[in-house]
Amino acid sequence: MTNTDNGFSATRRLILQGAGAVALVGLGNLPFGLAPAFAAANDKYPEEAFKQKSEADAIKSLYGKTAEVSDKVKMDAPEIAENGAVVPVSVTTTLADVTSISFLVAENPVALVASYKIPAGTMPSVANRIKMAKTSNVIVVVEAGGKLYSATKEVKVTVGGCGG
């Protein structure tokens, strides 16, 4: 009798485990629409995104989607940077519901430079100083209302900031 009982509960456990696995797979398949809420609750440093070499891979790793070019994203960066070690770049946007702003340099060894979280009540406008290895496109990505918008500008660098 005891044997049968054990057999039964073992089967039951297996079934439960199976159900758990199915539930997990289900979570992984959530549509992208739900992803931003998930990301907002997660304050972890995006380690993987900062390892990607290309800007496209970095954006994908960071947001899980691609950006469309928008003239509502206004980037201010110099035409020519004499010193690639310190390039002042700022961005501002008229888009509503901005949740994050990221800066990328296409030709840098690591494309992603900085990513800022913008909680409700904080202005969608950031200024910072970045390093550029050489002449490159600078890309700004703005996440607004769960969608990605970008602006790109080429900055010519006369002295690189990443050595080598």
Binding site: S90, A114, Y116, G121, T122
Partner: peptide, 25 residues
């Protein structure tokens, strides 16, 4: 007690980093 701004930085941010932003209130 609430975050008004969070920066995730990589090695591409300049030495002695500078950042500027603004929040309501």
């Amino acid at each position: 007690g609430k975050p008004v701004f969070t920066a995730d930085w990589g090695g591409g941010v300049s030495k002695d980093p500078y950042v500027k932003f603004a929040f309501k209130g």
